[in-house]
């Protein structure tokens, strides 16, 4: 297991810069999730770490040793691909043993490691089957096993759960997390699913347009987003974002509604309020009654949709108590209101 250190990494495809100024430190044994929308460069960054894509500038180091010029064969990594990429003509046992055979490990050692992974992943009954005779979840486990037997420097995951159905995905999410803890291997995990990122990562790297927006622990990103992009991307349901104009500690929205904030500022701003914070500021200065347009009951919580200053906002609470006669009274604690400037940066 190694610590991964990336400094000033750049990657271009032709004239297009797909990654710029990437600085990232992954501690030994840490589970870091790269998350962002499609095309943000997260998979490319993972491929650069793996050695499957050459970089155009910067450095990648494993435990201080520079590796960015090494081919993938010499980086001693394990990778789990989105489509599993199992060798279709080999049995599960041979798939697991492939990297060990390449390394010319003794036969007994290969048998021992394959048995260890098979037991841990509960794939022993399928060892003599070929991948095509396995279900999606079983293939996923074999891909995990192939990564585990190698005792690699680090694990790289490229959206490994996106081909599974919702229920299996939740189960595998827990399993992968548990396994990573058990063998304590440095892991870099790419996903576009922020729920996956929040539940699995020790730290999350939010990427957008080829650069890193923010790096932090899941709850840090949720509670203290550095940019409007992170605020809108992290959290489910997403944060309500409304345009307005700030004067001191008052923000006037498009329709003239004024909200009191805890931060003073002047000029155009974007107001950010999480749906779960819209109903908890009772007795404070920001109490507004709005007609409810729509509501969704999700079992564990209820979401209400209403219009505020020309934008649709979502408010949610655990129990359906807030509505009376089709109207909802929202009450926002000024300390819960986040402000972002025109460039999307956080105003503190």
């Amino acid at each position: 297991m190694v610590a991964i250190s990336i400094t000033s990494l750049r990657k271009n495809y032709g004239d297009v810069a797909v990654l710029r100024d990437i600085d990232l430190e992954v501690a030994d044994g840490e589970f870091v999730v790269l998350v962002g929308p499609s095309g943000c460069g997260k998979s490319t960054l993972l491929r650069c770490i793996a050695g499957l894509a050459a970089i155009d500038g910067g450095e990648i180091r494993f435990d201080g040793r520079r590796v960015d010029a090494l081919p993938p064969q010499e980086r001693n990594l394990s990778m789990v691909f989105q489509n599993y990429a199992l060798y279709p003509h080999l049995t599960v046992r041979e798939n697991l043993a492939f990297s060990l055979r390449v390394k010319r490990l003794p036969r007994e050692e290969i048998v021992r490691r394959v048995a260890w992974a098979a037991e841990l992943l509960a794939i022993e009954p399928y060892l003599d089957r070929r991948p095509r005779a396995l279900s999606g979840g079983q293939r996923q486990r074999v891909a995990m096993g192939r990564a585990m037997v190698k005792h690699a420097n680090a694990f790289l995951f490229d959206e490994p759960l996106s081909n599974l159905d919702a229920k299996l995905r939740v189960q595998m999410r827990k399993d992968i997390h548990k396994l990573q803890r058990a063998i304590n291997v440095t892991s870099v995990y790419v996903t576009h699913d922020q729920v996956e990122a929040m539940t699995m990562g020790d730290r999350i790297v939010v990427m957008n347009g080829g650069h890193i927006e923010q790096i932090g622990k899941p709850m840090e990103l949720y509670a203290d987003p550095a940019t409007q992009f992170v605020a809108g991307f992290i959290g489910s349901p997403p944060m309500n974002l409304l345009p307005g104009r700030a004067e001191g500690t008052a923000v006037t929205l498009a329709d003239g509604t004024t909200l009191r904030t805890a931060i003073g500022h002047g000029g155009p701003v974007t107001v950010g309020i999480r749906p779960e914070h819209l109903l908890e500021g009772g007795g404070g200065p920001n109490v507004i009654t709005l007609p409810v347009r729509d509501m969704q009951e999700l079992g564990g919580s209820v979401s209400y949709f209403a219009d505020l200053a020309g934008s649709e906002i979502e408010a949610c609470e655990p129990r359906p108590t807030a509505v009376s006669e089709g109207r909802i009274t929202i009450a926002i604690d000024p300390a819960r209101i986040l402000l972002f400037d025109e460039a999307g940066g956080r105003i503190r």
């Binding site: 793996a50 050695g51 499957l52 081919p71 993938p72 064969q73 980086r75 001693n76 990594l77 394990s78 990778m79 691909f81 989105q82 489509n83 990429a85 199992l86 060798y87 279709p88 003509h89 492939f98 990297s99 390449v102 390394k103 192939r146 190698k150």
Partner: peptide, 27 residues
């Protein structure tokens, strides 16, 4: 042949020749 299959073999440490002979040729 999906690129990921070759890439998986390279990451598993197989040289380009070995990947061709052991992984790509049978397919």
């Amino acid at each position: 042949i999906p690129d990921e299959i070759d890439e998986a073999a390279w990451i598993d440490g197989a040289s380009y020749w070995r990947t061709l002979v052991r992984i790509a040729l049978p397919l």
